[in-house]
Each structure stands twice: as structure tokens, then as C-alpha cells.
Design a protein around this nucleic acid. Sequence first.
DNA 1: CGGGTCATTTCTGCATGCAAAATCTCCCCC
DNA 2: GGGGGAGATTTTGCATGCAGAAATGACCCG
Lengths: 235, 235
Amino acid sequence: MSANGAKRARDTVEEIAEAQREQTTLHEQIVERLRAVLLDGELAYGAKIPEAELCLRFSVSRTPLREALKVLAAEGFVELRPNRGAIVAPVDPADIGHLFEFKGAIEHRIGLLAALRATAADQTRLEEIHALLRSHPEPPTYTALNQDFHHALAAATQNPVLLQTYDNLQKRVLRLRFVVNVNPLRVAQSFDEHEAIMVAFRARARLDLAERLEAHNRLTGEAVLRALAPAAPEA
Amino acid sequence: MSANGAKRARDTVEEIAEAQREQTTLHEQIVERLRAVLLDGELAYGAKIPEAELCLRFSVSRTPLREALKVLAAEGFVELRPNRGAIVAPVDPADIGHLFEFKGAIEHRIGLLAALRATAADQTRLEEIHALLRSHPEPPTYTALNQDFHHALAAATQNPVLLQTYDNLQKRVLRLRFVVNVNPLRVAQSFDEHEAIMVAFRARARLDLAERLEAHNRLTGEAVLRALAPAAPEA
DNA sequence: CGGGTCATTTCTGCATGCAAAATCTCCCCC
DNA sequence: GGGGGAGATTTTGCATGCAGAAATGACCCG
């Protein structure tokens, strides 16, 4: 009886848990692994994506790999050319401007909402990451922590729809670090901006937080574009 | 000589045109057609997507159809349950709130940017659609024109990154019209809001345009949630 | 008569096979 | 020597096949 009851209860729980447990279906694993490859800058922008090679590397057939490519194309990381294969989405300076401009709109709203809705846990996490950022100014770690910081801030809005789009944009921005050299000066300046952001956040000063987040984003975008301009002077 | 020159020039042009010409690769056609099926409300929310049936209907094998499902899942229109098939993404009232809240952030920015950057062609197109909206208050046409109107406004920002995300959100909202009954009163009110939006737009009053677009979005969202609340009173 | 277990059937996910398109290679011709 | 083209090779896109998981139903037990 009790055993049956326990079992049934567990079954019900399992159904739900099972649905959420990322019972990763191979092609979804591939999406993650391929995205990681792209974010690690292993392939140059515009480079052809070696389908056969990746099949060997991931030990899968072409079907799940191609499914993964479709998903990554929808997310904007790869570009599919009919009958001509997939390439790593090339970096177009014009699009970078648009990317940052759009992200600025979201950053602004993140400031407004996070100031209103951040939980104690959100604040604790932000303080943690912020402290780590202070003690890890070296590029590889700093970049990762920076991602975590802004992700945590976006999560504090308690809006999953916003969070998902924001994370996607952040990842697209993250790719750029391989085409532009990170300027140590910009890193220092960036941290100062984070300080100001934390001050506004702690005070739950929503308008200021929004303004500082958007300004931080704009400055980062301008730094990226400046770093890119001399590299591609064109005609 | 001249024939060769002409031929080569045409080849080069063709290469570019070919890359952009939607040389639709079956699975991409399926994405469009399936999306249309979902937006037409042919399948209920949470309903299982009949893979075999759709294969017959579209006269394709399962491979391209499943690729299309992956893309639509990435866009948020379907939900993939490992080993259990795909279902039409169910409507969660909480997510609807988040959807409109996030869209509000974008609407606001659309107002700011469109007021600054709209071209003469953009304005002409908006006036056209607005005039049609006035003369077509009947639901099916009005809804389609309403989509066009907001799309045109988003396009006037000249920011393709923003536009793409906005269009996706709009389509996700569009699906809701089958779960909530369109209220004629709301349609009339909506048109009044469009009038106010056009006034601000013509004057290039960016702050007002932003505010009115966001308010319009918020009111629509509230109307949807209100229409949904009695339908699902829960426990 | 309700609930549970096991067998059957259906369906999902991935691997493989095949035709068409694109790319490459080499040669020819100007 | 360079541009162009025909054939060979590779690659792409889709269809099909197959193993395993889930859904269905029959049967049995309490």
C-alpha cells in the first residue's frame, strides 16, 4: 500500500522531472557542443563548417549534426547556403552596430526591471560575481565572469522570455572577442562601469541602473567597432 | 570579348543574387508552411504534432520535416519532448505576461528609433496601411493589417537585428488570437491608439511615439490576459 | 470491478543510402 | 600564359531503414 502509494507519487513526480530533465537527445547535445566550438572561436568567421569532420569528432552521423546546424542557424550563429554548405556567420560591422543598439534597448529594460524585482538571492549572486571580477582582471576569466554578471542581472528581471533573447545576443557578442583584441584599458574602464552599476543596483535606483547599463553596453559596442575599424579599412 | 565580359559580370551578379534568392531547400519551405499552419491555429495548443500526417500533406519524408520542427522549436512555436514527439507550444498565462512585457521594451525602442530614422518610403507605407486599417475593422483583415503596421514601424528603425526578434515576438503573439476572442471594443480602442501613434510619428515626436507604442502594447497584453483569465480560472 | 503487469504496436531518433548539385582538376584552346 | 570547359570527385539534401523508447491494449490479480 504505502509502497504502491509512494511508487505512484514518485511516478507522477518523475513524469514532470523527466520532461524537464534534459534527457539530451544527441542532436541537442550537438547543438551545445557546436555552439561551444563556435563561441571558442575555433572556426574563423565565414569559414566553411566541416560537416564530415565534425561527424567524426562528435561520433555521430550527419542527421543529428545537420539538425543542430539548422538550430544554430535560427539562432544566428551559422549561415546556411542552399547546396553550398554551412559557414560560420560572418561578422559584418554594420550588423555589430545593430546588435549593440538592440541589446542596448534590452539592457535599459533590464535595469528598470531588475531594480524592482531582484531577490535577495539575485543580489547575493551579483555581489559574488562582482567581487570575483575585481580579483580576476585577466581576459579569459574576466570575460566569462562578465558574461555571468550580465546574465545574472538579466535573470533578476524574472522574465524568462527576455532572458532567453538576451542570452542569445550576449553569445553573439561574445564571439566578437576573437575578431577584436581586448584592450586592457577598456577592461579597467568596464570594471569601473560595473562598480557604478552595482551602486545603482544596491540602491534599487531603476532609472540610473537602466541608464548605466545602456551606457555600459554602448561604450562596449563603440570599443568593439573602434577595434574593428582599423582592421578592415576597406578600399 | 564583350560577350565574355558581359557573361562574367552577370555571373558575379548571379552569385550574389543566388545567395540571397531564397533557393528554398525544402526543409526551409516546410518551416514556412508549418509556421503558417501553427499561426493559422489549425492545431490546438499542446496538441501533438502529427509527423506522419504532415509528411503526407507536404509530400516530404520525415528528415526535412523534423529539421523544420527543430527550427520552429528554437523560435518558440513548438516544444520538443525527447522520445515523445513534438507538441504545439502550449500557452502559459505567465509567459504571456512576460512576452508582452519584453515586447513592450522593444516597442519603446522602436518608437525612439523610428521617429529618428523613418524614410519617406517608410512613412508612405505606414500611411497606406493605416488608411486600410481604418476601412477594414473586420477581424481577419484587421489582424493582418495590424501585423503589417507594426512590422513597418519596426522596419523603420533600420535595424535588422531588432526587426527579426520583433517579428518573432509578434508571431508568437499572433498565435494567441485563437485562444482569446477578439473583443470588438478592443479593436476600436486599438485603432484610436494607432491614430495617436500616427500623430506622434508624423511629428517625429520620439518620446511620445515610444510611450504610445509601449502603452498600446501594454493595453493589448492586458486585454489578452483579461480575456484569458475567465477561460482558465484554475482551482 | 479497479489496478497492475506484460506483450504488442506505434512512434521517435539516428544511421545509412542515393541522386543531384557544387566543387575541383586537368586539359585544351586562344 | 591565362581563360574556359568537360569530366571526375566531393558534398549536399533528402529518402529510407532499423533499433529502442513510449503508448496501447490484453490479461491477470486483488
